[in-house]
């Protein structure tokens, strides 16, 4: 199977013998349609952010940008009680911290599970797989809340950081990735040269699993950027994360549609920009990660 694969890779995405690899008109229409559907809600979000509240309720709804973006942004930032800027900053801090932690811890554990032999490793890895099925958000809600109350951490962002510092999916993914990305021979060769385990980790493993780490980082960052349930319970309205801040806007200023949409657009803008800038790498990494993991 490996041999076949190699040949396919070398012979390009398709061999001319089989016409089914040519995109027919149906394929093109499907893809164009999917593209429009994918882009439309985001487009609509930005359109609404440039309109007035009256226009927002028109039927049919406006489909072209208006000229009110500036005033909507001003109003959003002037709406102190949504703490939108605080929410953005908190989310960046939380997502970055958690991402760093998950990536580092997962890479370490992934290395051990993939390339080292130790007693109980199978059981430990199996237990991680099991824990992936535990709905921690729901099952942890009561005890974690009591824990944060007792620590006096409710309303503070470490309450949102701590429970997410590890993630079974990350370990599982890095184990799979490391298994396939690093040939055992390299590890053995380094051993023979007298390298310690940590040196092997630093010199052999880390350089090889970087693409996997990038994918894991992206997924973890997004997951934490989107965290909603737990922050909405443990944080207070004056120190929100970006998602709860939008929810607060939606609640307290639900009639100001265009301001709400301006906030929503602002909350997705950073990720969309990163995505457009590194799109090629992200798609490449996701696909590679998917095959290896």
């Amino acid at each position: 199977m490996t041999a076949i694969q190699t040949r396919r890779r070398s012979s390009g995405p398709a061999s001319s013998a089989n016409r089914i690899w040519d995109a027919g008109p149906l394929t093109k229409v499907t893809l164009a349609f999917a593209l429009v559907l994918s882009a439309f809600p985001i487009y609509y979000m930005f359109i609404m952010a440039t309109r007035t509240n009256d226009e927002a309720l028109d039927t049919p709804p406006p489909l072209l940008p208006g000229g009110h973006l500036g005033e909507n942004v001003e109003r959003l930032l002037a709406t102190e009680d949504a703490y939108f800027a605080t929410g953005l900053i908190n989310s960046i801090i939380i997502s970055t911290t958690v991402t760093l932690s998950v990536v580092i811890i997962s890479t370490l554990a992934g290395f051990a599970f993939a390339k080292l032999r130790f007693r109980g490793s199978k059981i430990l890895l199996g237990s991680i797989l099991l824990t992936m099925m535990v709905p921690l958000q729901q099952m942890g809600i009561v005890p974690l809340y009591e824990m944060m109350v007792n620590l006096g951490w409710t309303g503070q962002i470490q309450a949102v950081i701590l429970p997410f510092l590890v993630n079974g999916f990350g370990v599982f993914m890095m184990t799979q990735y490391t298994t396939q990305a690093v040939p055992d021979e390299l590890v053995e060769a380094a051993r023979v040269d007298g390298a310690s385990t940590m040196r092997i980790y630093a010199n052999v493993i880390l350089p090889a699993v970087r693409p996997g780490m990038a994918v894991l980082a992206l997924l973890t960052f997004m997951q934490n950027w989107n965290e909603f349930l737990w922050p909405s319970i443990v944080l207070n309205p004056d120190n929100p994360v970006v998602q709860t801040s939008i929810a607060a806007l939606n609640q307290a200023h639900g009639t100001d549609y265009v301001m709400l949409f301006t906030g929503t657009a602002a909350s997705v803008l950073p990720l969309v920009i990163v995505f457009v800038m590194f799109g090629r790498q992200i798609v490449g990494g996701l696909m590679e990660g998917a095959v290896k993991a």
Binding site: T86, N90, I93, M147, N150, L151, G152, W153, G155, Q156, I157, Q158, N236, P237, D238, N239
Partner: peptide, 30 residues
């Protein structure tokens, strides 16, 4: 948990009423 309670609470982010006693005092109204 026991460790945590004996340590000073880190003041990450919160800008609420728990700030130091120095003037001015902020009173929040919900």
């Amino acid at each position: 948990t026991s460790c945590g309670s004996s340590e000073p609470t880190p003041a990450a982010g919160g800008d609420g009423a728990s700030s130091a006693a120095a003037a001015p005092v902020t009173i929040t109204v919900h």
